[in-house]
């Protein structure tokens, strides 16, 4: 049962079910939880690669899937949240009007890799948001095993976000720049063919 009324939409995405905000199917949803979110500033969201994610790929989570996970956590979820608030529309309704689309990717640097079962956090910073286009940059870190990420990021803030101040035990996996996406009207999207 998704979000059926905009009154159910809180001030941020923390504690929200990703499936309510990332409308594509479960197999392609690469975000499991939102741990911190300040609507026009940034977001922290985690994911743990499963058997399906690493199948046929040396039990390793692919780099392109990391980019997709980061984009879902930041550009898609954060922009959908802002647009839902702006248009006073629940995400399900919004997804009938707009299609979240990749526009461009900047530089992405991989420092390490992720295996099945290794929880990571996407830490994304919103650099631009206008006309349904969002540009994010950020990092992916492998989280310490078993850490309660909700508790850990409860007191996170904008300053710590900008400095990637996340403390010991997190391992830098990737840095991502100018990850750009836009909500394109469905009728315009269909004309791109």
């Amino acid at each position: 049962m998704g979000i059926t009324d905009t009154s159910q939409i809180k001030d941020n995405l923390v504690g929200e079910l990703p499936e309510n905000w990332l409308i594509h199917g479960p197999k392609k949803r690469l975000v499991s939880a939102f741990h911190w979110h300040k609507p026009k500033v940034g977001v922290v969201a985690s994911y743990t690669p499963n058997e399906n994610d690493v199948e046929d790929h040396f039990d390793i989570f692919r780099g392109v899937d990391m980019i997709e996970s980061f984009a879902q956590a930041t550009v898609v979820a954060a922009a959908t949240f802002l647009e839902s608030k702006k248009q006073d529309m629940v995400p399900e309704e919004l997804s009938k009007l707009l299609i979240p689309t990749f526009i461009s990717l900047g530089n992405v640097f991989f420092h390490s890799y992720l295996e099945k079962g290794q929880t990571f956090v996407n830490i994304g910073f919103i650099k631009f948001y206008k006309w349904r286009q969002m540009v994010c940059e950020g990092r992916i870190y492998r989280a310490p095993k078993g850490l309660d990420l909700d508790a850990y990021f409860k007191d996170f803030d904008e300053e710590r976000l900008k400095n990637y101040d996340i403390g010991e035990g997190f391992v830098l996996i990737a840095e991502l720049f100018d990850i750009t996406g836009r909500g394109i009207k469905k009728e315009m999207f269909e004309k791109l063919q």
Binding site: F128, W131, R132, R182, K185
Partner: peptide
């Protein structure tokens, strides 16, 4: 084409106007 949004944002500032989502669409 991906640069048009960046140009639009600079034009908004230069001419002190505000464009709406539909304008850019």
């Amino acid at each position: 084409s991906t640069e048009l949004i960046n140009i639009a944002a600079k034009v908004e500032q230069k001419f002190n106007v505000e464009f709406e989502d539909e304008d850019i669409d």
